[in-house]
Design a binder for these strands. Sequence first.
DNA 1: GTTGTGACATCGC
DNA 2: CGCGATGCCACAA
Length: 126
Amino acid sequence: MDTIPPNMQVYYELVWQFVRQVPTGRVVTYGQLSQTLTPPDGTDPAQYAIYGSRWVGSAMAACPEDVPWHRVVNSQGKISQRQGAEVQRVLLEDEGVLLAKGKIDLKMYQWHGPDGTEVARQGRLF
DNA sequence: GTTGTGACATCGC
DNA sequence: CGCGATGCCACAA
Protein backbone atom coordinates (compact mmCIF):
# COMPACT_ATOMS: atom_id res chain seq x y z
CA MET A 1 0.00 0.00 0.00
CA ASP A 2 1.68 3.01 -1.21
CA THR A 3 -0.10 6.19 -2.09
CA ILE A 4 -3.85 6.28 -2.32
CA PRO A 5 -5.68 2.95 -2.34
CA PRO A 6 -8.92 2.43 -4.26
CA ASN A 7 -10.62 3.49 -1.10
CA MET A 8 -11.82 6.58 -2.86
CA GLN A 9 -13.64 4.49 -5.40
CA VAL A 10 -15.28 2.62 -2.56
CA TYR A 11 -16.40 5.90 -1.06
CA TYR A 12 -18.03 6.75 -4.36
CA GLU A 13 -20.10 3.61 -4.24
CA LEU A 14 -20.88 4.34 -0.63
CA VAL A 15 -22.40 7.65 -1.64
CA TRP A 16 -24.45 6.06 -4.38
CA GLN A 17 -25.58 3.39 -1.96
CA PHE A 18 -26.79 5.99 0.48
CA VAL A 19 -28.63 7.87 -2.22
CA ARG A 20 -30.34 4.64 -3.23
CA GLN A 21 -31.67 4.38 0.32
CA VAL A 22 -33.30 7.75 0.04
CA PRO A 23 -37.06 7.19 -0.07
CA THR A 24 -39.31 8.96 -2.50
CA GLY A 25 -40.36 12.44 -1.55
CA ARG A 26 -37.20 12.90 0.50
CA VAL A 27 -34.00 14.77 -0.21
CA VAL A 28 -30.51 14.85 1.20
CA THR A 29 -27.82 17.51 1.18
CA TYR A 30 -24.22 17.07 0.17
CA GLY A 31 -22.95 18.35 3.48
CA GLN A 32 -25.13 16.15 5.64
CA LEU A 33 -24.53 13.30 3.28
CA SER A 34 -20.78 13.62 3.72
CA GLN A 35 -21.24 13.76 7.48
CA THR A 36 -23.64 10.86 7.65
CA LEU A 37 -21.45 8.63 5.56
CA THR A 38 -18.16 7.33 6.86
CA PRO A 39 -15.12 9.06 5.37
CA PRO A 40 -12.49 7.03 3.52
CA ASP A 41 -9.79 5.47 5.60
CA GLY A 42 -6.63 7.52 5.98
CA THR A 43 -8.47 10.77 5.38
CA ASP A 44 -8.19 13.64 7.81
CA PRO A 45 -11.57 14.41 9.42
CA ALA A 46 -10.83 18.11 9.24
CA GLN A 47 -10.30 18.14 5.52
CA TYR A 48 -13.15 15.75 5.01
CA ALA A 49 -15.45 18.13 6.84
CA ILE A 50 -14.43 20.86 4.47
CA TYR A 51 -14.09 19.07 1.17
CA GLY A 52 -16.20 16.02 1.87
CA SER A 53 -19.08 17.73 0.18
CA ARG A 54 -17.02 18.12 -2.95
CA TRP A 55 -16.05 14.48 -3.00
CA VAL A 56 -19.71 13.63 -2.80
CA GLY A 57 -20.32 15.86 -5.76
CA SER A 58 -17.53 14.18 -7.66
CA ALA A 59 -19.05 10.84 -6.84
CA MET A 60 -22.42 12.01 -8.08
CA ALA A 61 -20.70 13.20 -11.22
CA ALA A 62 -20.44 9.56 -12.18
CA CYS A 63 -23.63 8.38 -10.54
CA PRO A 64 -25.19 5.38 -12.32
CA GLU A 65 -28.72 5.59 -13.65
CA ASP A 66 -29.99 3.44 -10.82
CA VAL A 67 -29.11 6.25 -8.45
CA PRO A 68 -31.75 8.91 -7.75
CA TRP A 69 -29.24 11.73 -8.16
CA HIS A 70 -32.13 14.15 -8.41
CA ARG A 71 -32.81 13.64 -4.70
CA VAL A 72 -29.48 15.18 -3.80
CA VAL A 73 -29.50 18.92 -3.27
CA ASN A 74 -27.09 21.42 -1.78
CA SER A 75 -27.07 22.95 1.69
CA GLN A 76 -29.08 25.83 0.37
CA GLY A 77 -31.97 23.43 -0.05
CA LYS A 78 -31.84 24.25 -3.70
CA ILE A 79 -30.89 22.35 -6.79
CA SER A 80 -27.28 22.53 -7.78
CA GLN A 81 -26.51 24.36 -10.98
CA ARG A 82 -26.32 21.46 -13.31
CA GLN A 83 -27.39 20.75 -16.86
CA GLY A 84 -30.37 18.83 -15.51
CA ALA A 85 -31.35 21.31 -12.84
CA GLU A 86 -34.65 21.91 -14.57
CA VAL A 87 -35.28 18.21 -14.91
CA GLN A 88 -34.33 17.62 -11.30
CA ARG A 89 -36.91 20.13 -10.12
CA VAL A 90 -39.59 18.35 -12.11
CA LEU A 91 -38.58 14.98 -10.75
CA LEU A 92 -38.74 16.25 -7.19
CA GLU A 93 -42.14 17.82 -7.69
CA ASP A 94 -43.30 14.62 -9.33
CA GLU A 95 -42.32 12.76 -6.17
CA GLY A 96 -44.30 15.13 -4.01
CA VAL A 97 -41.54 17.50 -2.99
CA LEU A 98 -42.85 21.02 -2.91
CA LEU A 99 -40.44 23.75 -3.89
CA ALA A 100 -41.06 27.02 -2.10
CA LYS A 101 -39.76 29.73 -4.36
CA GLY A 102 -37.49 27.19 -6.00
CA LYS A 103 -36.23 26.15 -2.60
CA ILE A 104 -36.94 22.92 -0.76
CA ASP A 105 -37.91 22.96 2.90
CA LEU A 106 -35.15 20.80 4.29
CA LYS A 107 -36.97 20.71 7.61
CA MET A 108 -39.71 18.85 5.85
CA TYR A 109 -37.96 16.82 3.20
CA GLN A 110 -34.40 16.40 4.39
CA TRP A 111 -34.01 12.72 5.07
CA HIS A 112 -31.76 11.22 7.75
CA GLY A 113 -30.53 7.67 7.94
CA PRO A 114 -32.52 4.58 6.89
CA ASP A 115 -34.08 4.15 10.32
CA GLY A 116 -34.26 7.81 11.05
CA THR A 117 -31.89 7.33 13.94
CA GLU A 118 -30.90 10.93 13.60
CA VAL A 119 -34.49 12.03 13.53
CA ALA A 120 -35.17 10.26 16.82
CA ARG A 121 -33.44 13.17 18.51
CA GLN A 122 -36.77 14.83 19.10
CA GLY A 123 -39.69 13.66 17.01
CA ARG A 124 -41.11 17.05 16.27
CA LEU A 125 -41.21 16.01 12.68
CA PHE A 126 -43.99 13.90 11.27
C1' DG B 1 4.45 15.51 -14.55
C1' DT B 2 1.54 19.58 -15.30
C1' DT B 3 -2.74 22.05 -16.12
C1' DG B 4 -7.61 22.69 -15.75
C1' DT B 5 -11.92 21.97 -13.88
C1' DG B 6 -15.58 20.65 -10.71
C1' DA B 7 -23.18 17.76 -8.66
C1' DC B 8 -20.03 22.24 -2.50
C1' DA B 9 -19.77 25.06 1.72
C1' DT B 10 -18.63 29.19 4.01
C1' DC B 11 -17.42 34.17 4.75
C1' DG B 12 -17.80 39.05 3.53
C1' DC B 13 -20.21 43.01 1.62
C1' DC C 1 -31.31 38.07 1.43
C1' DG C 2 -28.35 37.93 -3.00
C1' DC C 3 -23.92 37.79 -5.18
C1' DG C 4 -18.81 37.33 -5.42
C1' DA C 5 -14.80 35.33 -3.99
C1' DT C 6 -12.22 31.64 -1.53
C1' DG C 7 -10.22 26.78 -0.36
C1' DC C 8 -8.30 22.60 -1.45
C1' DC C 9 -9.27 17.43 -3.03
C1' DA C 10 -9.30 14.17 -6.64
C1' DC C 11 -9.75 12.96 -11.41
C1' DA C 12 -9.25 13.50 -16.64
C1' DA C 13 -6.66 14.85 -20.68
